[in-house]
Each structure stands twice: as structure tokens, then as C-alpha cells.
């Protein structure tokens, strides 16, 4: 995670962001500390990255990149390539940070955008990856090559749900929260085939950032908890904790956006290095 020292809504790159809305930075910091405490209370270990004043959205570490910590291979980090120039400096900041932590840093071709774990969630041995608004579809083929994971790509169709982590939340090996409003009909079919026991979110529940939750063991940490969702999660045996992150919702980010899971292990044998970057605009895959 990364503390919101420099956080603010300084530009508008999603429909939630409005520059005239002022972020209460003290309150944001309190909320962030509250989330850290909640996660630690649920049993998570939290590692903190140094914030950089140039990038206010660095607080949303979910978009830093893809983490792959397999037991039988060097820990791997694939830094994100951001769609918007405002966030592009984060790539090198996180690449340096992960290299400093002993990770092998593998890179996507420069011409392809992919916004990290915000657009790629591991579930049942696959990476479910969103594309269109922030990530390019051909990047998913490169991700598969780099990580050895089977990637299933779904097209995001609602600008308010601009990352896959606003539409999908893996809960355990069989269950996940899923917001069909975020995908086209092909994406819905893909998710239906992938998830044995989905908790389908209504549009209102999805737009309340329900899918942007953090799961630590059997604890689900949510920005808001719609009653129906809370009941179903509890019926499945999860502890639901609501954690106020309203200052961050002003920038279109919920609990999950503020975290990057480090205990991710993507399946499959290690792959050969990526092909050299293609010329700009020309992509395969």
C-alpha cells in the first residue's frame, strides 16, 4: 500500500473524478490508516511504498502491476503501462521499488497499455483481465507469455466500471462477486463458465464499489455493504467489515484499489521472455 500523502483529485480520467470536488487530505489519511488497521486485524501483513509527489494516484497501488510470487521460481513483477500520461510516471517508480525488493521485473511491449492487478484478477488458475478503457487486449497475450497464466479477457463496457476490479472480486476457489453490467455478453458468458458460485451484483451494488473489496482469508473488507450482499457473504461464512474510504471514492477508487496483493501465485511453468517490443501501433495477439 502507499499512504495518501500527495493524494487529491487533480485531474479527471474517469467519470467519478471531478476537479471541483475537494479531497479532505487529513480525512483521507485517517481512512487509509483505518483500512491498514482493518487489513492487519484480518491477518494481513501490510508493506508500505514511499509516496511520490508527482503522482497523486500512486495511492491506488492495485494498478502498480502484476505480482507473481511462485514458490518454484523467482518472484516476478510486470509493471503496468498506464493509459493516461498523468499516471505513466508510476511505472518506473514501482518497477524500481519491486526490483529493490528482489523481484525480477519483466516488461510489456511499450505500445501496449495494461493497468496491472486493477485489470487482472487471479481466479481458479486463470487471470481474468479487463480491456478497453485502460488496458489493451493484446497486452493480455503478452501477460500470458510473461507469467505463464491462462488469461481470459473480457471487454468492459461501462465507463464507470473502468477496471476489472470494479466488476469482479474473487472470494475463494469457487466463489466470486461479479457485476454483469460491466461486461458485454461475451464477457458475461466467460465469467459464467469460469465461476461455479457467483454472487451476481445488481447495477446499484456494482456502482457502490461492492466488487472493489479486499479479501483476507475469510474476511471481506468493503467500502459499502449493500444488505443483500452482506447477507449472502455471511451465509457463505465470510466476516464482512465495512471500511469508510469515501475520500478515495471521489477519485473512483475503493478498498481494493488501495491495495496490491503480494501473495499471488500464477500457475504454469515459467515462460520464455517476451518478444522484443513491437513498433508503436502495430500489435499482434
Amino acid at each position: 500500500m502507499c499512504p495518501p500523502v500527495h493524494f487529491g483529485v487533480l485531474y479527471e480520467i474517469n467519470p467519478w473524478m471531478h476537479k471541483e470536488v475537494v479531497v479532505d487530505r487529513d480525512r483521507a489519511h485517517e481512512q487509509w490508516k483505518g483500512l491498514v488497521a482493518t487489513l492487519r486485524g484480518a491477518g494481513a501483513e501490510v508493506v508500505v511504498a514511499e509516496p511520490d509527489p508527482a503522482v497523486p494516484d500512486m495511492v491506488f497501488t492495485a494498478n502498480a502491476g502484476i505480482v507473481n510470487c511462485r514458490a518454484d521460481a523467482p518472484h516476478q513483477f510486470v509493471p503496468a503501462h498506464f493509459r493516461f500520461p498523468e499516471r505513466q510516471p508510476e511505472t518506473e517508480i514501482f518497477a524500481r521499488w519491486f526490483a529493490g525488493q528482489g523481484f525480477t521485473v519483466d516488461r510489456l511491449p511499450v505500445a501496449l497499455a495494461h493497468e496491472g492487478a486493477g485489470d487482472a484478477l487471479p481466479f481458479r488458475g486463470s487471470l481474468l483481465s479487463g480491456y478497453r478503457f485502460r488496458s489493451d487486449l493484446p497486452a493480455t497475450a503478452e501477460l500470458a507469455r510473461l507469467t505463464g497464466a491462462a488469461v481470459r479477457a473480457v471487454e468492459l463496457v461501462d465507463e464507470r466500471l473502468y477496471h476489472i476490479d470494479l466488476t469482479f472480486c474473487p472470494l475463494d476457489d469457487r466463489r466470486a462477486m461479479a457485476a454483469p453490467m460491466g461486461w458485454d455478453r461475451y464477457g458475461r458468458t466467460v465469467v459464467e463458465a469460469l465461476v461455479p458460485e457467483p454472487l451476481w451484483l445488481t447495477d446499484d451494488e456494482a456502482l457502490a464499489f461492492s466488487a472493489n473489496s479486499v479479501v483476507v482469508g475469510s474476511t471481506v473488507v468493503m467500502a459499502t455493504t449493500p444488505p443483500r450482499v452482506g447477507r449472502q457473504l455471511e451465509a457463505w461464512g465470510f466476516d464482512v467489515v465495512t471500511c469508510d474510504v469515501s475520500e478515495f471514492l471521489k477519485a473512483g477508487g475503493g478498498c481494493r484499489c488501495l491495495t496490491l496483493a503480494l501473495d499471488v501465485s500464477l500457475g504454469g511453468p515459467p515462460r520464455s521472455p517476451a518478444r522484443p517490443p513491437e513498433p508503436s501501433g502495430v500489435t499482434t495477439g
Partner: peptide, 12 residues
């Protein structure tokens, strides 16, 4: 190219 079958990308 890619996981175009499982992702239904080819169908789409």
C-alpha cells in the same frame, strides 16, 4: 492471437 477461444474473443 491470445486466449481468444476461452475469452470468446474470436467469436466476438
Amino acid at each position: 492471437e491470445g486466449h481468444i477461444v476461452d475469452s470468446l474473443i474470436l467469436a466476438k
